[in-house]
């Protein structure tokens, strides 16, 4: 107490973290700045203008693609996080049992394949189903995204679980709490940071995906990345910056709002 000795302090860590945040946000600032660029290239500054917001607003293709990205991302992230949490509960804090190694391998498998390979494999497989059932909706993209998001959601949740011992849960069980109640009241709150990290990762990974989506998508199912991929050959316009900026601001606004609302309630 006499000196300011903090047990949590590690020399240089705060500086590195600060650098990290600056580095993370620098490109985003540039991205946002160029959204207000009057020039039609993403590389030279032509003065302040809102023209790209206007033109993005009128470009239904890019707006649809952006919304679709968020839609698929949100659904796939939630589904994969739920499945990953269940799988993590089933594969941690236990003595080895038959099939455990198989489960590890199976769950992590989507990670180990370059995207292009999964893309081609899914193209062949889903096409058969599309022809057979006549259904060619967003379900395929959601299924594919959920599948490759599971390992991303699973790893942080599992890492968190491995650091949790069973004492509290055993105590709850001793007090005749039902397994569900124990899960809701004890396990879930303790596991929450892991789940949140998993959910975020899954969402981000789904938003990023280009190659698998490119191969799986049917008519009218462009996401923002596949739309951009199609544009690269012929020049990307600052419309992309504008639409990204709009959605960044929107998500930041929503997140901030909920953050303050939930803090006030606490």
């Amino acid at each position: 107490m006499a000196s300011n000795f903090s047990i949590k302090h590690q020399p240089g860590f705060t500086a590195i973290a600060a650098t990290c945040f600056v580095v993370l946000y620098l490109p985003i600032i540039v991205l946002v700045a160029y959204a207000f660029n009057a020039a039609s290239s993403t590389s030279e500054w032509g003065g302040f203008s809102l023209r790209w917001f206007q033109s993005a607003y009128q470009n239904t293709q890019v707006i649809d693609a952006t919304l679709r990205s968020f839609q698929i991302g949100a659904i796939a992230a939630v589904l994969s996080t739920i499945f990953a949490t269940m799988a993590a509960l089933a594969t941690t804090r236990t003595a080895p049992y038959p099939g455990l190694t198989f489960k590890y391998a199976a769950i992590n498998q989507p990670l180990m394949v370059p995207e292009i390979v999964t893309g081609v494999a899914l193209l062949i497989f889903f096409s058969r189903i599309k022809i057979f059932t006549g259904y060619s909706g967003l379900g395929y993209l959601i299924a594919a995204h959920t599948a490759f998001c599971i390992p991303f959601a699973y790893l942080p949740i599992r890492a968190r679980l491995e650091n949790m011992d069973l004492t509290l849960e055993r105590a709850a069980a001793d007090l005749y709490a039902t397994p569900w109640k124990t899960f809701r009241r004890i396990t879930l709150p303790l596991l929450w940071p892991g789940i949140l990290a998993g959910l975020m990762l899954a969402f981000v990974i789904s938003l990023d995906d280009v190659v698998i989506t490119e191969f799986v998508k049917s008519g009218g199912q462009d996401t923002l990345p596949t739309y951009m991929l199609g544009q690269i050959r012929r020049g990307v316009t600052p419309e992309i910056n504008a639409i990204s900026t709009a959605f960044l601001l929107l998500s930041v606004a929503i997140v901030t709002l909920f953050f303050f609302v939930s803090r006030k309630r606490d």
């Binding site: 193209l123 096409s127 058969r128 189903i129 599309k130 060619s136 191969f215 049917s218 008519g219 009218g220």
Partner: peptide, 14 residues
């Protein structure tokens, strides 16, 4: 890519 996708079928494109 276009050829591969259309050849597999079920794309919904006209």
């Amino acid at each position: 890519t276009a050829l591969a996708k259309v050849r597999q079928g079920g794309t919904g494109f006209d």
